[in-house]
Amino acid sequence: MRERVTEGECELSSDLPTAQYEQRTENVVVRVAPEFLAEQSNPSDSRFIWAYTVEIVNQSEHDLTVMERFWQIADSRGQVQEVRGAGVVGETPVVRSGETFRYTSGAPLTAPSGMMRGSYTVQNTEGASFDIVVPTFLLDSPHDAHRLN
Rank of each mutant, 00 (worst) to 15 (best):
F101I: 01
V66F: 00
S129T: 13
N149G: 15
T53S: 09
F48V: 02
A111Q: 00
I56R: 02
A86S: 10
Q79A: 09
W71M: 05
L139E: 10
D15R: 12
E91R: 09
E68C: 00
R117I: 02
S44D: 06
A128C: 15
T125Y: 12
L138H: 07
T121S: 06
F130N: 03
Y120W: 08
P112V: 02
R2M: 07
H146T: 05
S97Q: 02
E9I: 09
V134K: 13
Y120G: 01
T53D: 08
N149D: 14
E61C: 08
Q59T: 08
L148E: 04
T104D: 01
C10W: 09
S129V: 06
P108D: 01
G114D: 00
R147H: 12
S14C: 13
Q59S: 07
A107D: 00
L37M: 07
T6F: 03
P43T: 00
T53I: 04
G78D: 01
E99W: 05
W50Y: 06
Q81M: 15
H143M: 08
M1Q: 11
T125W: 14
E3F: 11
H143R: 09
E99K: 04
G8V: 01
G87K: 05
R2C: 09
F130R: 05
T25V: 02
P17A: 02
Q79E: 11
S113K: 03
